[in-house]
């Protein structure tokens, strides 16, 4: 078995050696990415499709430039599309060599042109799984197990293009699928709240962020809001990720934008669809607008403040106002530019 990321033994060894102390882990995103994302790393992408995607972390990785990253996630849209877009524009500066995934796309907003470009031009190695297969792989990693059995992702062709194994269940005598643990070198996760030690509170669906955090060698967390440790300690059952799994805490409001962050802001649909349109154009040979996008919104800014600073206030305001409201209270709100 060829492990991508860490093997279960290595993951265990690294964790035994890790400083698990309860210390202030605040740092800038620039520092966090510099310290915890290396060339060749296996990167676990948190969130789900365009919900709580770690967009700010992805942009910083692109700005700093890395080579031969591999990505592992269930379903994602903006993050792989930004990373593949950057590789398409400046392969000498940034590249991905491999994707382990179940879905790349934007659901209502359509399929991923960057996934099409990269695969149809044979620029990337892929390994298909189902969503539950990938969730199970992170869960196995989080449990310290080399694999877990599952009844998903078998019977068709998916199992033929990944490292899962059929076995006969020793108890039922029926076929069952085993999926190997996934231990990323680094998990990149955006959450609503964290304290300075890295205790995280996720609001709404957790997706597979807690499992990914526990499975990864290192974890970078960006949060909408830094909260007092006392807030965490008064209701610790609400902690989704415990501090000793986290290595860097970066307070970054709008760190998921133009994705959605539950209870904080809805999709930045106008900007999301704008970027999506540029990737569609790129696949059809219209290269310059995508290059100009990266020059302006990613390479042309120092950090996330710069990126969000380029967003029209009306778009941010609308995304905030429309989130978590009933239809009744949404009446009269109009997406700017839509």
């Amino acid at each position: 078995m060829e492990w991508t990321g860490l093997s279960p033994d290595d993951a265990r060894e690294k964790l035994e050696q890790k400083d698990k102390s309860k210390r202030d882990k605040r740092m800038s995103l620039t520092e966090a990415v510099k310290e915890f994302v290396k060339d060749g790393d296996h990167v676990g992408v948190g969130g789900f499709v365009n919900s709580r995607p770690p967009v700010a972390i992805a942009h910083e990785i692109i700005r700093q430039g890395r080579q031969d990253l591999s990505l592992a996630f269930q379903s994602a849209g903006l993050v792989p599309d930004y990373l593949m877009g950057a590789m398409a524009i400046r392969p000498d500066h940034f590249s991905i060599s491999r994707l382990e995934f179940a879905y790349v796309g934007h659901e209502y907003a359509g399929t991923s042109s960057m996934l099409r470009y990269m695969t149809e031009n044979n620029k990337i190695v892929i390994e298909d799984w189902t969503n539950y297969n990938m969730s199970t792989r992170f869960k196995a990693g989080s449990m310290g197990l080399p694999f877990l059995p599952t009844r998903s992702g078998l019977g068709g062709d998916i199992e033929k293009c990944n490292r899962s194994q059929y076995i006969k269940c020793p108890f039922t005598d029926r076929d069952i699928l085993l999926v190997p643990a996934c231990h990323p070198d680094v998990g990149i996760i955006h959450v609503q709240e964290a304290d300075i030690y890295g205790n995280c509170r996720i609001k709404g669906q957790t997706f597979t962020c807690p499992e990914m955090a526990m499975a990864s060698k290192n974890v970078i967390v960006t949060c909408e809001k830094l909260v007092e440790h006392d807030v965490i300690a008064t209701e610790p059952t609400r902690t989704s990720i415990p501090y000793f799994a986290v290595d860097a805490v970066v307070e970054l409001p709008f760190g998921s934008f133009p994705g959605l962050c539950h209870d904080i802001h809805y999709y930045g649909k106008t900007h999301l669809e704008y970027y999506k349109g540029l990737t569609n154009g790129f696949r059809k040979g219209v290269v310059e607008p995508l290059r100009e996008y990266f020059d302006k919104y990613v390479f042309g800014v120092k950090d996330t403040d710069g990126f969000i600073g380029l967003m029209p206030y009306e778009q941010l305001k609308y995304a905030r106002q429309v989130e978590s409201r009933s239809l009744h209270l949404q009446q009269g709100l109009q997406e700017p530019g839509a």
């Binding site: 179940a102 149809e120 044979n122 189902t130 297969n133 009844r151 992702g153 998916i158």
Partner: peptide, 18 residues
């Protein structure tokens, strides 16, 4: 690895169908 047309992938469909 280099299909004529790459579609988005299973997502959860492969799980629901199972």
């Amino acid at each position: 690895m280099n299909p004529d047309i790459r579609l988005p992938g299973s997502g959860g469909a492969g799980d629901m169908s199972c």
